Amino acid sequence: MVLQEAGLSTSEEGVYRILVTLASATAREVSQRSDLGPGETEAVLSALERKGLASSVGGTPRRFTATPPDVALLPQLRQRADALEQARVAVGDLVETYRSNTRRRDAGQLIEVITGAEALRQNLRQVQDNARHELLWFCKAQYVAMPSGSNSAEFDALARGVRYRVLYEQAFFDDPGSVDNVAKAVIAGEVARAVPQLPLRLAVADRTVAVCPLVPGGPGGSQEEPTAALVRGSSLLDALVALFERYWETAVPLNVTESGAVSGTDGSANGASLSAADQHLLSLLVAGIADKAIASQLGLSKRTVQRRIQHLMTLAGAATRMQLAWQAARRGWM
Protein backbone atom coordinates (compact mmCIF):
# COMPACT_ATOMS: atom_id res chain seq x y z
CA MET A 1 0.00 0.00 0.00
CA VAL A 2 1.32 3.44 -0.92
CA LEU A 3 -1.24 5.93 0.42
CA GLN A 4 -0.06 5.87 4.02
CA GLU A 5 1.67 9.20 3.36
CA ALA A 6 -1.81 10.62 2.69
CA GLY A 7 -2.98 9.47 6.12
CA LEU A 8 -4.71 6.22 5.16
CA SER A 9 -4.33 2.91 6.95
CA THR A 10 -3.85 -0.26 4.94
CA SER A 11 -7.51 -1.27 5.31
CA GLU A 12 -8.72 2.26 4.50
CA GLU A 13 -6.62 2.36 1.34
CA GLY A 14 -7.94 -1.04 0.25
CA VAL A 15 -11.58 -0.06 0.77
CA TYR A 16 -11.07 3.33 -0.90
CA ARG A 17 -9.50 1.69 -3.96
CA ILE A 18 -12.52 -0.63 -4.25
CA LEU A 19 -14.93 2.26 -3.80
CA VAL A 20 -13.20 4.25 -6.56
CA THR A 21 -14.00 1.46 -9.04
CA LEU A 22 -17.72 1.52 -8.17
CA ALA A 23 -20.31 4.20 -8.80
CA SER A 24 -21.74 3.50 -5.34
CA ALA A 25 -21.78 0.50 -3.04
CA THR A 26 -23.04 -0.74 0.29
CA ALA A 27 -20.74 -2.00 3.01
CA ARG A 28 -21.70 -5.59 2.09
CA GLU A 29 -20.88 -5.05 -1.60
CA VAL A 30 -17.49 -3.61 -0.70
CA SER A 31 -16.92 -6.42 1.80
CA GLN A 32 -17.49 -9.00 -0.93
CA ARG A 33 -14.55 -7.49 -2.83
CA SER A 34 -12.22 -7.29 0.18
CA ASP A 35 -10.90 -9.45 3.00
CA LEU A 36 -12.96 -7.55 5.59
CA GLY A 37 -16.27 -8.57 7.09
CA PRO A 38 -19.36 -6.39 6.65
CA GLY A 39 -19.02 -4.87 10.13
CA GLU A 40 -15.34 -4.03 9.62
CA THR A 41 -16.09 -2.62 6.18
CA GLU A 42 -18.85 -0.42 7.64
CA ALA A 43 -16.39 0.96 10.20
CA VAL A 44 -13.74 1.65 7.55
CA LEU A 45 -16.28 3.37 5.30
CA SER A 46 -17.35 5.58 8.19
CA ALA A 47 -13.67 6.45 8.82
CA LEU A 48 -13.25 7.35 5.15
CA GLU A 49 -16.35 9.51 5.36
CA ARG A 50 -14.91 11.40 8.36
CA LYS A 51 -11.66 11.97 6.42
CA GLY A 52 -13.57 13.31 3.42
CA LEU A 53 -12.63 10.42 1.14
CA ALA A 54 -16.17 9.03 0.88
CA SER A 55 -19.73 10.20 1.27
CA SER A 56 -22.91 8.26 2.03
CA VAL A 57 -26.31 8.61 0.37
CA GLY A 58 -29.67 7.87 1.85
CA GLY A 59 -31.35 4.53 1.88
CA THR A 60 -31.22 1.28 3.77
CA PRO A 61 -28.61 -0.01 3.72
CA ARG A 62 -26.47 3.11 3.19
CA ARG A 63 -24.62 3.44 -0.06
CA PHE A 64 -21.21 5.06 -0.29
CA THR A 65 -19.44 6.91 -3.12
CA ALA A 66 -15.75 7.81 -3.34
CA THR A 67 -14.62 11.43 -3.26
CA PRO A 68 -12.49 12.08 -6.40
CA PRO A 69 -8.81 11.36 -5.56
CA ASP A 70 -7.59 14.74 -6.83
CA VAL A 71 -10.00 16.44 -4.44
CA ALA A 72 -9.52 14.10 -1.49
CA LEU A 73 -5.81 13.22 -1.62
CA LEU A 74 -3.73 15.74 -3.56
CA PRO A 75 -4.25 18.67 -1.13
CA GLN A 76 -3.13 16.48 1.78
CA LEU A 77 -0.08 15.32 -0.11
CA ARG A 78 0.83 18.91 -0.98
CA GLN A 79 0.51 19.92 2.67
CA ARG A 80 2.73 17.02 3.71
CA ALA A 81 5.25 17.90 0.99
CA ASP A 82 5.34 21.51 2.20
CA ALA A 83 5.78 20.34 5.78
CA LEU A 84 8.60 18.01 4.75
CA GLU A 85 10.34 20.81 2.86
CA GLN A 86 10.08 23.09 5.88
CA ALA A 87 11.47 20.31 8.04
CA ARG A 88 14.31 19.76 5.55
CA VAL A 89 15.22 23.45 5.66
CA ALA A 90 15.08 23.43 9.46
CA VAL A 91 17.34 20.37 9.62
CA GLY A 92 19.75 22.02 7.20
CA ASP A 93 19.92 25.08 9.46
CA LEU A 94 20.52 22.85 12.48
CA VAL A 95 23.29 20.99 10.65
CA GLU A 96 25.00 24.25 9.72
CA THR A 97 24.68 25.53 13.30
CA TYR A 98 26.12 22.26 14.59
CA ARG A 99 29.02 22.37 12.15
CA SER A 100 29.70 26.03 12.92
CA ASN A 101 29.84 25.35 16.66
CA THR A 102 31.91 22.24 16.13
CA ARG A 103 34.42 24.16 14.02
CA ARG A 104 34.84 26.71 16.80
CA ARG A 105 35.69 23.94 19.27
CA ASP A 106 37.76 21.77 16.94
CA ALA A 107 40.18 23.30 14.44
CA GLY A 108 40.30 19.93 12.67
CA GLN A 109 36.80 20.66 11.43
CA LEU A 110 38.03 23.80 9.69
CA ILE A 111 40.98 22.40 7.76
CA GLU A 112 41.36 18.81 6.62
CA VAL A 113 44.64 17.66 5.08
CA ILE A 114 44.41 15.61 1.87
CA THR A 115 47.42 13.59 0.76
CA GLY A 116 47.88 12.01 -2.64
CA ALA A 117 46.73 12.75 -6.18
CA GLU A 118 43.86 10.23 -6.11
CA ALA A 119 42.48 11.60 -2.83
CA LEU A 120 42.75 15.11 -4.25
CA ARG A 121 40.85 14.09 -7.41
CA GLN A 122 38.10 12.47 -5.31
CA ASN A 123 37.68 15.58 -3.19
CA LEU A 124 37.59 17.85 -6.25
CA ARG A 125 34.88 15.65 -7.78
CA GLN A 126 32.95 15.60 -4.52
CA VAL A 127 32.89 19.36 -3.99
CA GLN A 128 31.69 19.79 -7.58
CA ASP A 129 29.03 17.08 -7.27
CA ASN A 130 27.72 18.72 -4.07
CA ALA A 131 27.81 22.29 -5.41
CA ARG A 132 24.45 23.96 -5.93
CA HIS A 133 25.29 27.52 -6.95
CA GLU A 134 28.84 28.41 -7.99
CA LEU A 135 32.39 27.13 -8.42
CA LEU A 136 35.37 29.49 -8.34
CA TRP A 137 38.56 28.06 -9.85
CA PHE A 138 42.24 28.99 -10.20
CA CYS A 139 43.81 26.93 -13.00
CA LYS A 140 47.60 27.03 -13.00
CA ALA A 141 49.85 25.44 -15.58
CA GLN A 142 51.13 21.85 -15.17
CA TYR A 143 48.33 19.94 -13.47
CA VAL A 144 48.77 18.23 -10.10
CA ALA A 145 45.86 15.79 -9.99
CA MET A 146 43.41 16.59 -12.77
CA PRO A 147 44.70 16.94 -16.36
CA SER A 148 43.08 19.46 -18.67
CA GLY A 149 39.94 18.00 -20.23
CA SER A 150 39.45 15.29 -17.58
CA ASN A 151 37.10 17.22 -15.29
CA SER A 152 33.79 15.70 -16.40
CA ALA A 153 32.22 16.77 -13.08
CA GLU A 154 32.26 20.36 -14.35
CA PHE A 155 30.02 19.55 -17.31
CA ASP A 156 27.61 17.67 -15.04
CA ALA A 157 27.45 20.66 -12.68
CA LEU A 158 27.01 23.15 -15.53
CA ALA A 159 24.14 21.03 -16.86
CA ARG A 160 22.28 21.30 -13.55
CA GLY A 161 22.73 25.07 -13.38
CA VAL A 162 25.89 25.55 -11.32
CA ARG A 163 27.85 28.63 -12.41
CA TYR A 164 31.59 28.24 -13.07
CA ARG A 165 33.98 31.18 -12.96
CA VAL A 166 37.45 30.02 -13.92
CA LEU A 167 40.73 31.92 -14.01
CA TYR A 168 43.54 30.54 -16.16
CA GLU A 169 47.13 31.67 -16.06
CA GLN A 170 48.85 32.28 -19.37
CA ALA A 171 51.20 29.29 -19.16
CA PHE A 172 48.20 26.95 -18.80
CA PHE A 173 47.55 27.25 -22.53
CA ASP A 174 51.00 25.92 -23.40
CA ASP A 175 49.85 22.34 -22.70
CA PRO A 176 48.65 20.39 -25.78
CA GLY A 177 44.86 20.41 -26.17
CA SER A 178 44.28 22.93 -23.39
CA VAL A 179 42.80 25.60 -25.68
CA ASP A 180 40.30 23.14 -27.17
CA ASN A 181 39.35 21.92 -23.69
CA VAL A 182 38.71 25.46 -22.47
CA ALA A 183 36.67 26.21 -25.59
CA LYS A 184 34.41 23.22 -24.85
CA ALA A 185 33.93 24.38 -21.27
CA VAL A 186 33.12 27.96 -22.31
CA ILE A 187 30.61 26.71 -24.88
CA ALA A 188 29.02 24.59 -22.12
CA GLY A 189 28.57 27.69 -19.95
CA GLU A 190 31.84 28.30 -18.12
CA VAL A 191 32.77 31.96 -17.63
CA ALA A 192 36.53 32.14 -18.15
CA ARG A 193 39.20 34.80 -17.82
CA ALA A 194 42.99 34.84 -18.08
CA VAL A 195 45.81 36.47 -16.13
CA PRO A 196 49.57 36.40 -16.65
CA GLN A 197 50.14 34.34 -13.50
CA LEU A 198 48.22 32.88 -10.55
CA PRO A 199 49.60 32.53 -7.00
CA LEU A 200 48.17 29.06 -6.28
CA ARG A 201 45.71 26.37 -7.31
CA LEU A 202 42.24 26.75 -5.85
CA ALA A 203 38.67 25.50 -6.11
CA VAL A 204 35.86 27.04 -4.03
CA ALA A 205 32.35 25.57 -3.99
CA ASP A 206 29.39 27.75 -2.99
CA ARG A 207 31.78 29.87 -0.87
CA THR A 208 31.46 27.23 1.87
CA VAL A 209 34.36 24.88 1.13
CA ALA A 210 37.65 25.20 -0.74
CA VAL A 211 40.31 22.80 -1.97
CA CYS A 212 43.77 24.34 -1.97
CA PRO A 213 46.95 22.32 -2.70
CA LEU A 214 49.66 23.05 -0.13
CA VAL A 215 52.72 21.13 -1.31
CA PRO A 216 53.63 20.76 -5.02
CA GLY A 217 53.57 17.28 -6.43
CA GLY A 218 52.52 15.19 -9.41
CA PRO A 219 53.59 15.75 -13.04
CA GLY A 220 54.09 19.49 -12.59
CA GLY A 221 56.05 19.39 -9.33
CA SER A 222 58.21 16.99 -7.41
CA GLN A 223 57.91 13.23 -7.59
CA GLU A 224 56.21 13.18 -4.18
CA GLU A 225 52.45 12.97 -3.78
CA PRO A 226 50.72 16.39 -3.49
CA THR A 227 49.29 17.58 -0.21
CA ALA A 228 46.19 19.78 -0.17
CA ALA A 229 43.86 21.40 2.34
CA LEU A 230 40.08 21.15 2.46
CA VAL A 231 39.06 24.48 4.00
CA ARG A 232 35.57 24.98 5.41
CA GLY A 233 33.72 28.11 6.50
CA SER A 234 36.25 30.36 8.25
CA SER A 235 38.18 33.61 7.90
CA LEU A 236 40.73 31.69 5.85
CA LEU A 237 38.02 30.66 3.39
CA ASP A 238 36.79 34.26 3.21
CA ALA A 239 40.33 35.35 2.40
CA LEU A 240 40.61 32.78 -0.40
CA VAL A 241 37.33 33.98 -1.91
CA ALA A 242 38.51 37.60 -1.67
CA LEU A 243 41.77 36.61 -3.38
CA PHE A 244 39.81 35.06 -6.23
CA GLU A 245 37.62 38.14 -6.64
CA ARG A 246 40.68 40.38 -6.64
CA TYR A 247 42.27 38.47 -9.52
CA TRP A 248 38.91 38.18 -11.32
CA GLU A 249 38.48 41.95 -11.44
CA THR A 250 41.76 42.46 -13.30
CA ALA A 251 41.58 39.42 -15.60
CA VAL A 252 40.91 39.46 -19.34
CA PRO A 253 37.72 37.64 -20.47
CA LEU A 254 38.19 34.62 -22.72
CA ASN A 255 35.85 34.43 -25.71
CA VAL A 256 35.21 31.57 -28.12
CA THR A 257 34.98 32.53 -31.79
CA GLU A 258 32.62 30.90 -34.29
CA SER A 259 35.51 28.72 -35.44
CA GLY A 260 36.05 27.46 -31.89
CA ALA A 261 39.22 29.46 -31.22
CA VAL A 262 39.73 31.08 -27.82
CA SER A 263 40.79 34.74 -27.67
CA GLY A 264 42.48 36.28 -24.67
CA THR A 265 44.64 33.29 -23.72
CA ASP A 266 47.75 35.44 -23.52
CA GLY A 267 46.25 37.24 -20.53
CA SER A 268 46.67 40.61 -22.17
CA ALA A 269 44.51 43.12 -23.99
CA ASN A 270 43.29 41.65 -27.24
CA GLY A 271 39.76 42.92 -27.67
CA ALA A 272 38.57 44.48 -30.85
CA SER A 273 39.68 48.07 -31.32
CA LEU A 274 37.04 50.65 -30.56
CA SER A 275 35.62 53.23 -32.88
CA ALA A 276 36.67 56.86 -32.45
CA ALA A 277 33.18 57.63 -31.10
CA ASP A 278 33.43 54.94 -28.41
CA GLN A 279 36.93 56.07 -27.49
CA HIS A 280 35.63 59.63 -27.10
CA LEU A 281 32.74 58.37 -24.95
CA LEU A 282 35.16 56.42 -22.75
CA SER A 283 37.43 59.40 -22.26
CA LEU A 284 34.47 61.49 -21.11
CA LEU A 285 33.28 58.70 -18.80
CA VAL A 286 36.70 58.25 -17.21
CA ALA A 287 36.92 62.03 -16.75
CA GLY A 288 33.89 61.76 -14.46
CA ILE A 289 31.43 63.57 -16.73
CA ALA A 290 27.78 62.71 -16.06
CA ASP A 291 25.76 60.73 -18.59
CA LYS A 292 23.54 63.69 -19.38
CA ALA A 293 26.54 65.91 -20.16
CA ILE A 294 28.15 63.16 -22.27
CA ALA A 295 24.92 62.84 -24.24
CA SER A 296 24.88 66.59 -24.83
CA GLN A 297 28.48 66.66 -26.03
CA LEU A 298 28.02 63.69 -28.37
CA GLY A 299 24.61 64.78 -29.64
CA LEU A 300 22.96 61.59 -28.35
CA SER A 301 20.13 60.79 -25.99
CA LYS A 302 20.99 59.87 -22.42
CA ARG A 303 19.46 56.40 -22.99
CA THR A 304 21.72 55.84 -26.02
CA VAL A 305 24.80 56.80 -24.01
CA GLN A 306 23.85 54.40 -21.24
CA ARG A 307 23.21 51.64 -23.76
CA ARG A 308 26.63 52.17 -25.37
CA ILE A 309 28.33 52.18 -21.96
CA GLN A 310 26.61 48.89 -21.12
CA HIS A 311 27.83 47.46 -24.43
CA LEU A 312 31.39 48.50 -23.60
CA MET A 313 31.09 46.93 -20.14
CA THR A 314 29.97 43.66 -21.72
CA LEU A 315 32.80 43.84 -24.24
CA ALA A 316 35.34 44.37 -21.45
CA GLY A 317 33.78 41.82 -19.10
CA ALA A 318 33.30 44.55 -16.50
CA ALA A 319 30.60 44.53 -13.84
CA THR A 320 30.98 48.20 -12.91
CA ARG A 321 31.99 51.41 -14.63
CA MET A 322 35.14 51.52 -12.53
CA GLN A 323 36.11 48.10 -13.84
CA LEU A 324 35.33 49.31 -17.37
CA ALA A 325 37.74 52.22 -16.93
CA TRP A 326 40.44 49.87 -15.65
CA GLN A 327 39.95 47.40 -18.50
CA ALA A 328 39.87 50.19 -21.06
CA ALA A 329 43.24 51.49 -19.84
CA ARG A 330 44.67 47.97 -19.79
CA ARG A 331 43.47 47.20 -23.30
CA GLY A 332 44.67 50.50 -24.75
CA TRP A 333 41.18 51.64 -25.69
CA MET A 334 41.86 55.24 -24.76
Rank of each mutant, 00 (worst) to 15 (best):
Asp174Leu: 15
Arg193His: 10
Asp180Ile: 08
Leu237Cys: 08
Gly220Lys: 06
Gly189Arg: 05
Val179Ile: 15
Arg246Lys: 10
Asp174Cys: 07
Ala183His: 02
Gln170Lys: 15
Ser150Phe: 12
Asp156Val: 15
Glu225Cys: 03
Tyr168Trp: 11
Ala203Glu: 06
Val211Arg: 00
Ser152Ala: 14
Phe244Pro: 01
Pro196Ala: 08
Arg232Leu: 04
Leu167Met: 07
Glu245Gly: 03
Val179Gly: 00
Val162Met: 07
Pro216Met: 08
Ala242Tyr: 03
Ala188Thr: 07
Val231Thr: 03
Ala203Ser: 11
Arg232Cys: 00
Leu236Val: 13
Cys212Ser: 13
Asp174Tyr: 09
Pro216Leu: 06
Thr250Leu: 13
Thr208Trp: 00
Arg160Asn: 08
Pro226Cys: 09
Leu202Pro: 01
Asn151Thr: 10
Gly177Asn: 11
Glu224Trp: 11
Ala229Glu: 04
Gly233Met: 09
Gly161Gln: 10
Pro196Gly: 12
Leu214Pro: 00
Pro213Gln: 09
Gly189Asn: 06
Asn181Gly: 04
Val231Gln: 01
Ala188Lys: 09
Val182Ala: 15
Thr250Lys: 06
Ala203Leu: 15
Gly221Thr: 10
Val211Tyr: 02
Gln197Thr: 13
Arg207Phe: 03
Ala194Glu: 02
Ala153Lys: 02
Pro213Tyr: 06
Glu225Pro: 09
Asn151Ala: 15
Arg160Val: 12
Val231Trp: 01
Val195Met: 04
Arg163Ser: 14
Val191Arg: 12
Ser235Glu: 12
Glu190Thr: 15
Ser235Trp: 11
Ser178Asn: 14
Ala239Pro: 00
Val186Ala: 11
Gly161Val: 12
Ala239Ile: 01
Leu230Thr: 05
Val204Ala: 02
Leu243Gly: 07
Ala242Pro: 00
Val166Thr: 15
Asn181Arg: 11
Leu167His: 01
Ser152Val: 14
Glu169Asp: 14
Val186Leu: 11
Arg165Ala: 02
Val209Ala: 02
Ser150Lys: 10
Phe155Gly: 00
Ala153Arg: 10
Gly221Ser: 09
Arg232Trp: 08
Val241Glu: 09
Arg165Asn: 04
Phe155Pro: 00
Val204Thr: 03
Pro147Glu: 09
Arg201Gln: 12
Gly161Glu: 10
Arg201Asp: 10
Ser148Tyr: 13
Leu243Met: 13
Ser150His: 12
Gly218Glu: 05
Phe173Asp: 01
Val231Arg: 01
Ser222Leu: 13
Ala229Tyr: 02
Ala192Arg: 05
Asp206Phe: 10
Val211Ala: 03
Gln170Arg: 15
Leu240Val: 04
Glu225Thr: 04
Ala188Gln: 09
Val182Ile: 09
Arg163Ala: 15
Gly189Ile: 10
Val231Met: 05
Val241Arg: 03
Val191Cys: 04
Ser148Ile: 14
Ala205Thr: 06
Trp248Lys: 04
Val211Thr: 06
Leu230Tyr: 02
Gly177Pro: 01
Ile187Ala: 12
Leu237Glu: 02
Phe172Tyr: 15
Val231Ser: 02
Ser178Asp: 10
Thr227Lys: 10
Pro213His: 08
Arg246His: 12
Leu202Gln: 03
Ala171Thr: 13
Arg163Phe: 02
Pro219Gln: 08
Ala210Gly: 05
Ala153Gly: 01
Gly221Ala: 13
Asp175Asn: 04
Ala210Thr: 04
Ala188Trp: 08
Gly221Pro: 06
Pro196His: 07
Ser178Lys: 01
Thr227Gln: 14
Ala192Gly: 13
Val182Phe: 05
Ala239Gln: 13
Ala210Glu: 03
Asn181Cys: 11
